[in-house]
Amino acid sequence: MSKEKEQTQGTPISRRNFLKGVGTGAVAASVAPTVLVGAETAAEAQMGDKITRAEIKLNINGKTYEVEVESRTTLLSVLRDGIDTGGERVDLTGAKSICDRGECGGCTVQVGGKAVYSCMTLALEAEGKEITTVEGLANGEQLHPVQEAFVQHDALMCGFCTPGFVVAAKSLLDQNPSPSHEEIKEGLAGNICRCGTYPFIFEAVKTASRKIGG
């Protein structure tokens, strides 16, 4: 029986399979420093509420959130759907899940100053690191130069991919303050826009680069 059939026909997922799905190494490495709650044996950790859980602290946009996560919980899912232990929603919905597998960049955020796909980053991996989302770039009403340039050049249409592009562009300029046209294309190659705003995104990044003083 094929794996696909097994899943769709309802064989309960096993711990082995879900660890396979999330990358065993990352889980093992990241779980170690946290407090494990709930079941630990393979037999117990089969489904739903028996899955291994941990309480972790995440520093997002300068604010600390305490959230309970499973080993499989992605950073993206904490940002968008997480509820901290005090009952408050994290509610940072700027980062989007578009492909859910690291193909589109819609979920791009910075972790430890580096752009990452938050759909491919386990929440556990982000513990202890500074997490910056698109919501954390503006200073009050004062937009980040990248954001300002995106608005000025109309580097967005429906806007669904925009948060990912803004963070990716900011990260590019962090590393290379004055990228060439080709370097901008390469730097943003991990992001997809279906409306086709690319030409104006390139212009926006050039303008932002000038503003930042690159």
Binding site: T93, K96, E148, V151, L156, T162
Partner: peptide, 18 residues
Amino acid sequence: TRLSGAEKATGRAKYTFD
């Protein structure tokens, strides 16, 4: 420039998904 530009560039714009 687009009226919704700042909302979209800051991630404040709420789509159905959000």
